[in-house]
C-alpha cells in the first residue's frame, strides 16, 4: 500500500488520499455504493472526531445519499447513548468501561470494538527546561499518583539531580478519555490521580500553559505537540521494559506505530452496534472507514496503524457483520 507513507507531510498525505479515493472509486463496491440511502448516527470522543469527520466527508463522494452525522459529546457521553441504542457508531479514545458494558447488555446491545488509529500521549516541558532529558514511567507515576497530592511539589523530589524548584503539572481534565488512558497507563488504575494540577479538556489550553511556564510538565495528544514544536520540548519516556525498545523513547510516528513508545501510545476506537450492521449503508461506511482510516488519520494529525492491522480489523468486522457469534462475543 503506497498511501501509508510514514511522512505526515500534508501534501504527501493529500496526494496519497486522492490516489486511494480514485482506486476505491474505480474498484467499485459489491453493493453499488452510490445507490445507498439512509442515515448513520455517530457520536462520542472529540479526540476521534477529526478522523470520523474526515471519513464522513470522503464517504459523501462515495454514497452521496447517505446522511452521516457526527457529534462530540465525549467518550463517556458517546457510550451512554451507544449503550441505549440511540446511535449506530460511537467514537472512543478509551475502551468501554464495565459499567457502560453492563448497560449495553441490559439493553441487549452487542457491539464490536475497532481500533482505527494511534495517538501518542506526549510528555512535554518548557523549552528552557534543560534538566529533564528523559523520564521513567515510575517517575511519572510518582508525580501523578493520588498519593503525590500536596507532597510532590519540587523537581528534586522526583530525581535528586533535578533542581530544587517547584514543579507545575498540566494534564487532561477528568472527564476525558485521555485522562482515563493516562492514569491507567501511568498510575496503574484508571481515573486515579492527584487532583492538584492544572486540568483542561482543551489541549490547546495545556499547550498554552506549558509553553509559558518554565517549571511546567504536561501531557497531551501527539498532534498538539507536533503543531507547537517550537514552543515545547518533548521528553522521551522509559518504561524500563527492554522487550519493547531499550531506554527512553521519544514519541514519533515510527515509535508509536511499532509499539516501542510504550505505554503512552494509545489506540483510538470506533464501536459499532450489531443492530446497525443490518443496514447496508452502515456496513459500507465501516468498510470505507477501515480502508481510508490510515491515510485520513495521518492527515488530521494522528498516527496510522500498520496495514495488516487494518486488514485484520476489516476481517473481524466482516465476520461481525455476517453475525458470526465469535465476533459478536468480543468484549
Amino acid at each position: 500500500m503506497l498511501y501509508l507513507t510514514s511522512s505526515i507531510s500534508r501534501l504527501g498525505a493529500a496526494l496519497a488520499l486522492g490516489g486511494t479515493l480514485l482506486l476505491t472509486a474505480c474498484g467499485g463496491n459489491q453493493e453499488g455504493g452510490s445507490d445507498l440511502t439512509g442515515s448513520i448516527q455517530i457520536d462520542g470522543s472529540s479526540t476521534v472526531y477529526p478522523i470520523t469527520e474526515a471519513v464522513a466527508e470522503e464517504f459523501r463522494a462515495e454514497a452521496p445519499k447517505v446522511r452521516v452525522t457526527v457529534g462530540v459529546s465525549g467518550s463517556g457521553g458517546g457510550f451512554k447513548k451507544f449503550s441505549r441504542g440511540e446511535i449506530d457508531i460511537t467514537n472512543a479514545s478509551r475502551s468501554i468501561k464495565e459499567s457502560e458494558a453492563a448497560v449495553a447488555k441490559e439493553n441487549s446491545i452487542t457491539y464490536l470494538e475497532l481500533p482505527v488509529a494511534f495517538d501518542g500521549l506526549t510528555v512535554v516541558v518548557h523549552p528552557e527546561n534543560d534538566w529533564v532529558k528523559d523520564i521513567t514511567v515510575a517517575e511519572l507515576k510518582k508525580m501523578w499518583e493520588p498519593a503525590a497530592q500536596g507532597k510532590i511539589k519540587k523537581w528534586n523530589q522526583i530525581r535528586p539531580e533535578w533542581p530544587d524548584k517547584e514543579i507545575h503539572l498540566y494534564g487532561a481534565g477528568v472527564e476525558s478519555g485521555t485522562y482515563d488512558y493516562f492514569t491507567e497507563a501511568i498510575v496503574g488504575e484508571s481515573h486515579a490521580s492527584r487532583g492538584d494540577y492544572t486540568a483542561s479538556e482543551d489541549d490547546n489550553v495545556l499547550v498554552q500553559g506549558v509553553s509559558t511556564d518554565p517549571l511546567a510538565l504536561g501531557f497531551f495528544g501527539y498532534a498538539y505537540y507536533e503543531e507547537n514544536k517550537a514552543k515545547l520540548k518533548a521528553i522521551p519516556v522509559d518504561d524500563q521494559n527492554e522487550e519493547n525498545g531499550k531506554g527512553a523513547i521519544m514519541p514519533s510516528i515510527e515509535t508509536v506505530k511499532d509499539g516501542t513508545y510504550a505505554p503512552l501510545s494509545r489506540p483510538l476506537f470506533i464501536y459499532v452496534n450489531s443492530k446497525a450492521v443490518a443496514r447496508p449503508e452502515v456496513v459500507e461506511f465501516v468498510n470505507f472507514y477501515l480502508d481510508n482510516a490510515g491515510a485520513l488519520s495521518e492527515e488530521v494529525g494522528y498516527i496510522s496503524m500498520p496495514d495488516e492491522q487494518y486488514e485484520a480489523q476489516k476481517k473481524k468486522f466482516q465476520e461481525f457483520a455476517a453475525g458470526t457469534p465469535v465476533a459478536a462475543a468480543q468484549q
Binding site: T52, T69, V70
Partner: peptide, 20 residues
C-alpha cells in the same frame, strides 16, 4: 445543545424542525 445531542458534523442543511 451538545448535551441534548446537537452534532458537530452535519453535511446537510436542516429543512424541518425535526431535522438534526
Amino acid at each position: 445543545l451538545i448535551v441534548i445531542g446537537a452534532l458537530a458534523y452535519v453535511p446537510f442543511v436542516p429543512t424541518s424542525p425535526t431535522d438534526e
